[in-house]
Amino acid sequence: MMAERNSDRSGRHDRDSVTTTALRLLDDVGLPDLSMRRLATELGIQPSALYWHFDSKQQLLGAIAERILSRIPLEEHDEIATDADVLSAARSIRDALLAYRDGAEVVLSSYALGFGVDRTQARLRSVLQRRASIGADVAATTLLQFVIGHALLVQQRLHAESLGATHLVGDDTTGDVSSVFDDGVMLFLHGIDAAAKRPEDHSEV
């Protein structure tokens, strides 16, 4: 009976249900307190049983990151992407990151180790391929890093404010999130447009 409990072969939990519970626990207690032991207690199993589903905590965080980003829709359009199309894609990622406590930090840590963001990267690559004649892979990576970084900054400041920390002097990232974010995406797009036109301009000189 104990061997069955430790391996979690009883069928009470699977990878999907463990991830669901971990995401709920993340929202309740935050990333610093999301330990494998605490998750196992929540599930009513031994901590060692979790490794039947995930080889490491980082792999679990990768699954959580995928779940956080799973609400982002994949597009199925062929026409040239407008500013609004790219902005909508970027906003959908930002909103997914901000929907969960410490969501941006979880996704960032997973992204740094190559987990959890393939679907999201594909979403940005798809819309940017319809936008520019230059490398969409590099553009998608750059835009994704901006979105994650912005969301992480917002969450960190919101957390500091919730603890009563003095508000930082300077740009008010939490006070006008949409404006700061949208301006950043537009600056990025203008740079992409300029880079796409530069080879033609250079050949005409």
Rank of each mutant, 00 (worst) to 15 (best):
P47M: 07
D55I: 09
S162F: 02
A195E: 03
I68T: 01
S92I: 08
V185F: 03
E161R: 11
V127Y: 06
A104R: 12
R157Y: 02
H167F: 07
T174G: 04
S7W: 01
F146N: 06
R5D: 04
E105C: 09
P73S: 03
R5G: 04
L189I: 02
K57G: 09
G11F: 06
A151R: 00
F188M: 06
A89R: 11
G170L: 01
T41S: 12
R157T: 02
Q121A: 13
S17I: 09
A22E: 10
L87G: 07
V180C: 07
V177D: 08
I148R: 02
D182V: 08
D55V: 12
G164V: 00
L152G: 02
F181Y: 10
A81Q: 09
A136R: 03
I134C: 03
S162L: 06
G175N: 02
L158E: 15
D118Q: 12
E204Q: 11
R101Q: 13
P199H: 01
N6I: 13
A112K: 12
Q129H: 11
A195Y: 01
S133W: 04
D183V: 11
Q59F: 05
M1Y: 05
L26A: 10
R5M: 08
A195C: 03
L128W: 07
V147D: 01
L39G: 03
I192E: 00
I72P: 07
L69M: 06
R94E: 10
A132L: 13
D83K: 10
S133N: 11
D176E: 11
G175L: 05
A96I: 12
S10R: 15
A99Q: 14
T20E: 09
M36H: 07
R67F: 05
G149V: 01
D171I: 15
L97Q: 10
I72A: 10
R101F: 10
A3S: 10
L189N: 00
M1F: 05
L60C: 00
V106F: 04
H13V: 10
L124A: 06
D182E: 15
A84R: 13
D193T: 02
A196L: 01
D183M: 10
A194I: 01
D118A: 15
G149N: 02
L61N: 05
V205C: 04
I72K: 08
T174M: 02
A140S: 10
T174V: 15
G164C: 01
G114Y: 12
S203Q: 07
R125I: 01
A81E: 03
R37C: 06
L60G: 00
L25G: 02
T141H: 10
S126G: 12
S56C: 11
G170M: 02
G114T: 11
L69A: 03
S110L: 08
E204C: 06
S7K: 06
Q156R: 15
V154Y: 00
I192P: 00
